[in-house]
Amino acid sequence: MDIFHGRALSPAGPATDIMPVTPNDAADLAITASALFIEIGGIIEIVTVRGETRSVTVGDMMLLPVGVRRVLATGTTAQGIHALVVA
């Protein structure tokens, strides 16, 4: 049984997929993330859906509930980054 069948999608979730992220200074994510999940903490440099560049220190196994269009390679030390997407 598919509990998502016929359900309207919402940026507030739940996510419909989770995709691994390779930080990149020049390219946006294929699908804008509604949140990020980080396996190994550190610093994460992001560009938000509003176009603002932010630097955030995150812990291990952390959910960062902010809309993200790009994860920058420069300055990002966190690892195992995944984009939660609604599409």
Rank of each mutant, 00 (worst) to 15 (best):
residue 1 M to C: 11
residue 1 M to A: 15
residue 2 D to V: 06
residue 3 I to D: 14
residue 3 I to G: 09
residue 4 F to P: 00
residue 4 F to I: 11
residue 5 H to K: 14
residue 5 H to A: 15
residue 5 H to W: 14
residue 5 H to N: 13
residue 6 G to R: 02
residue 7 R to N: 09
residue 8 A to G: 07
residue 9 L to S: 11
residue 9 L to A: 11
residue 10 S to K: 03
residue 10 S to H: 08
residue 11 P to D: 06
residue 11 P to I: 09
residue 12 A to V: 12
residue 13 G to W: 03
residue 13 G to A: 07
residue 14 P to E: 09
residue 15 A to Y: 09
residue 16 T to H: 08
residue 16 T to K: 14
residue 16 T to R: 12
residue 17 D to Y: 10
residue 17 D to N: 14
residue 17 D to M: 11
residue 18 I to R: 11
residue 18 I to V: 14
residue 19 M to T: 15
residue 19 M to D: 13
residue 20 P to N: 05
residue 20 P to T: 09
residue 20 P to C: 03
residue 21 V to I: 07
residue 22 T to I: 13
residue 22 T to D: 11
residue 22 T to F: 07
residue 23 P to W: 01
residue 23 P to V: 03
residue 23 P to R: 02
residue 23 P to M: 04
residue 23 P to F: 03
residue 24 N to H: 10
residue 24 N to V: 01
residue 25 D to V: 02
residue 25 D to S: 05
residue 25 D to K: 03
residue 25 D to L: 04
residue 26 A to F: 10
residue 26 A to N: 13
residue 27 A to H: 07
residue 27 A to L: 12
residue 28 D to V: 01
residue 29 L to T: 03
residue 29 L to A: 03
residue 31 I to P: 06
residue 31 I to A: 12
residue 33 A to P: 10
residue 33 A to R: 04
residue 34 S to M: 13
residue 34 S to H: 06
residue 34 S to K: 15
residue 35 A to K: 12
residue 36 L to Y: 11
residue 37 F to K: 01
residue 38 I to N: 04
residue 38 I to S: 01
residue 38 I to R: 03
residue 38 I to W: 04
residue 38 I to E: 04
residue 39 E to V: 08
residue 39 E to C: 06
residue 39 E to Q: 14
residue 40 I to P: 04
residue 41 G to P: 04
residue 42 G to A: 05
residue 43 I to G: 10
residue 46 I to T: 08
residue 46 I to P: 01
residue 46 I to E: 05
residue 46 I to F: 07
residue 47 V to P: 00
residue 48 T to S: 14
residue 48 T to D: 09
residue 49 V to E: 15
residue 49 V to K: 13
residue 50 R to W: 08
residue 50 R to Q: 15
residue 50 R to L: 12
residue 51 G to V: 05
residue 51 G to L: 02
residue 52 E to N: 12
residue 52 E to Q: 13
residue 54 R to L: 15
residue 55 S to G: 09
residue 55 S to W: 10
residue 55 S to M: 13
residue 56 V to S: 04
residue 56 V to D: 07
residue 57 T to F: 05
residue 58 V to F: 05
residue 59 G to I: 01
residue 59 G to Q: 05
residue 59 G to P: 02
residue 61 M to N: 14
residue 61 M to T: 12
residue 62 M to F: 09
residue 62 M to Y: 15
residue 63 L to W: 07
residue 65 P to Y: 00
residue 66 V to A: 11
residue 67 G to R: 08
residue 69 R to D: 02
residue 69 R to P: 01
residue 69 R to L: 01
residue 71 V to K: 05
residue 71 V to W: 05
residue 72 L to N: 12
residue 73 A to L: 08
residue 73 A to Y: 07
residue 74 T to D: 05
residue 74 T to P: 02
residue 75 G to T: 02
residue 75 G to N: 00
residue 75 G to S: 07
residue 76 T to W: 00
residue 76 T to P: 04
residue 77 T to G: 09
residue 78 A to S: 10
residue 79 Q to N: 06
residue 80 G to V: 09
residue 80 G to H: 07
residue 80 G to T: 08
residue 81 I to Y: 10
residue 81 I to Q: 07
residue 82 H to K: 12
residue 82 H to E: 08
residue 83 A to W: 04
residue 83 A to I: 06
residue 84 L to W: 07
residue 85 V to L: 04
residue 85 V to A: 02
residue 85 V to T: 11
residue 86 V to R: 05
residue 87 A to L: 12
residue 87 A to P: 15
